[in-house]
Amino acid sequence: MIIRLLFAALILYALYRFVKTVQSKPAAERRGYYISLIIGLGAAALILLSITGRVHWIAGLVGGALPFIRQYVLKHIYHRLSNGNKNNTQSEQAPPQRPSSAMNQQQALSVLGLKAGASDDEIITAHRQLMQKFHPDRGGNDFLASQINDAKDVLLGKRGH
């Protein structure tokens, strides 16, 4: 009996700490944390019921795995949809116009990691190497890729195209 009370107290304290942590997050992020909490508690309750013999063990196993499956499936679907939308919008619309670069020569050299007086071949090589590392399709982001492209354009004299 004491062990059950201690276990219940431990769970209540963990819930209290979780809620306090979530309260410190921005309001826009809180909903996702609370949904994860509810799904996790449901899975834990289902596993507990299966351990005590009130639910068949297969149902407990499936229910316990659902939060992990949900996370994987939703991430996969989101990735597919976001890539599909990017491909569809790019093929239907004209390519987006980048705003004119406010980057100067020194900043462009710094972005590409070059020294003043670099040749066109050195600029192109540095650009290619950085884009291979920081391209959005390889785990980089659009901002870094645009900065690298802008730096190349500034150094090769192709401003505002």
Rank of each mutant, 00 (worst) to 15 (best):
I47Q: 02
Q93R: 10
A59M: 09
E29N: 02
L61H: 03
G84A: 11
N87M: 09
L66Q: 07
R17Y: 11
I38A: 02
S91G: 02
R80N: 14
Q93F: 06
P67G: 03
A43R: 07
R30S: 01
K86E: 09
I69A: 09
L41G: 04
S50D: 04
A44E: 02
I69K: 00
Q93A: 11
Y13D: 06
R54K: 11
I11G: 02
Q23R: 11
H76Y: 14
G84D: 08
G32F: 07
I77G: 06
A94R: 00
S36V: 02
H56S: 12
H56K: 12
L49S: 05
I11T: 14
L81S: 07
A27D: 14
R54E: 07
R54M: 09
Y78S: 12
L37E: 06
V73Q: 10
H56D: 10
I51G: 01
L10R: 08
G32R: 03
L48S: 13
L10Y: 04
L81H: 03
A14W: 14
E92L: 12
S24P: 00
P95E: 00
H76R: 12
E29S: 06
L10D: 06
R70P: 01
R30H: 08
L66H: 07
S50E: 05
R30E: 04
G60T: 06
A28R: 10
L66P: 00
Y33I: 00
R80C: 12
A45Y: 06
A27N: 11
K86N: 09
V19A: 08
L48K: 03
S50A: 10
S36H: 08
H76V: 09
S36R: 06
L10I: 15
V22A: 08
Y72H: 14
L41V: 14
A28L: 10
G42Y: 07
N88L: 15
K20E: 15
G32L: 06
Y34P: 03
K86L: 08
N87C: 04
N83A: 13
I35H: 05
A44I: 15
K20Q: 15
Y78I: 08
Y78C: 06
R31N: 03
I11P: 00
K25F: 13
A27L: 13
H56L: 10
L61W: 04
V22G: 04
K75Y: 07
V19K: 03
P96R: 05
A27F: 12
E92H: 11
V55D: 00
S24W: 04
L41C: 04
N83H: 09
Y33L: 02
T21C: 04
G42F: 05
I58D: 02
Y33K: 02
R17H: 09
V73E: 14
G63L: 12
G60Y: 02
P67F: 11
